[in-house]
Design a binder for these strands. Structure first.
Lengths: 201, 201
DNA sequence: GCCTTGTAGTTACAAATGTCATTATTTTTA
DNA sequence: TAAAAATAATGACATTTGTAACTACAAGGC
């Protein structure tokens, strides 16, 4: 199995290379330090599996995954990151990545998961999968105060900030501030994602 | 039954006054030409039912309905308009209006519907109700071209314009333009309303 | 009493969003 | 074949949206 390792941290790159090379069935054919280099490496080596960090300079892992999948659809891509970031996971999978691992995973397990990925299944860290499936038992809407819930409900009805302000007899600025707090609590980016989650619960 | 008629068109105001005054159980206690005047009239006369246009100068019917309902919750409000405008209907009902009539309704039916409203039920023009319940047979998403549907789907997934552009390998400007067309076709205002409708279908 | 939380506000700023006009290419359809 | 529709793009523009920093006040809990 031919591996390409992509990470802007040279130490991580080298450590992974050494550790994974110990596996009999794995060969690290190249390492790259950003997305652009990764694509170049694919041209030269055409790996079976790409292990790639998400946050990198020049071109990030998501963009690189997209490009690689477009040119070499048969290459399997495993995203690698230090924390559980739901937004990036969604984007990475939409970009074509089949797996997603937290860097803290022990290397023995990592090798096994790379094999699974290569054999065709998708590999996701269980915590990551839970986040993706947004299980209802961790319904974050419960954390909202009554007033915040009022505003969340009206956002989910499709009202603008101005309309919400009129509806609740408060200023538009307050609506904006409170919505900002709501989005932070729910770990969402904008009102649209809030509305989607509200109705999908 | 004490009526207040509110419309910026004096002709409409007077016609309604004359026609409705013929009904034995109805008295038009005042007429007003905008939302502010309507509120003043409520102070002086405290009507049972307010018949009110939506589009008016100074203060529109929706804002006025909100204010009136706040001060006199027992007053029943019937919005009156010349066409079927789904956005305004939703807003008017959220603002506290209980009824909504198209002006083209014959006066005989109108009187009957005002009586119904006064007795406690909500009165909506059937066409209006259909629009409100967004029945699936008039699923406007069908009107979208394949490419427009691609973009609508990604909007409903919660992606930003930039992310959609990357996903589809087109420019962000094109996404913006196309979304603009989509919103126009679906008669919606923004991406949030689109996402809501997409999942509520 | 003091501290925290919830609510509400303002201002300023940056980023994203939506609209319009206008052009161009390709595909479909009449 | 000619016209119409779909796709894609750019630049300018106004508006909306979201963030940050900071103030203020009332209600409860310790």
């Amino acid at each position: 199995m031919r591996l390409l390792i992509v990470d802007d941290d040279m130490l991580v790159c080298q450590s992974l290379k050494v550790l994974l090379s110990r596996e009999k069935d794995m060969t690290v054919v190249a390492t790259a330090y950003n997305g652009l280099e990764a694509i170049e490496c694919c041209h030269r080596e055409t790996p079976d599996v790409v292990l790639m960090d998400i946050q990198m300079p020049e071109m990030d892992g998501i963009q690189a995954a997209r490009e690689i999948k477009r040119s070499w659809p048969e290459v399997r891509i495993m995203m690698l990151t230090t924390f559980q970031d739901e937004k990036n996971i969604r984007l990475a999978i939409l970009a074509g990545a089949e797996g997603y691992l937290i860097k803290s995973t022990e290397v023995s397990g990592m090798a096994q998961q790379i094999r699974s990925l290569y054999s065709g299944v998708s590999v996701l860290d269980p915590d990551v999968l839970n986040k993706l499936l947004q299980q209802p038992n961790t319904d974050k809407f419960i954390d909202l105060t009554p007033r915040e819930m009022d505003i969340a409900r009206l956002v989910a009805e499709g009202l603008s900030n101005k309309e919400i302000a009129q509806q609740l007899y408060i200023s538009e600025g307050t609506v904006r501030n409170t919505l900002s707090v709501i989005l932070d609590k729910l770990e969402m980016r904008d009102r649209t994602q809030l509305a989607i989650q509200y109705w999908k619960r």
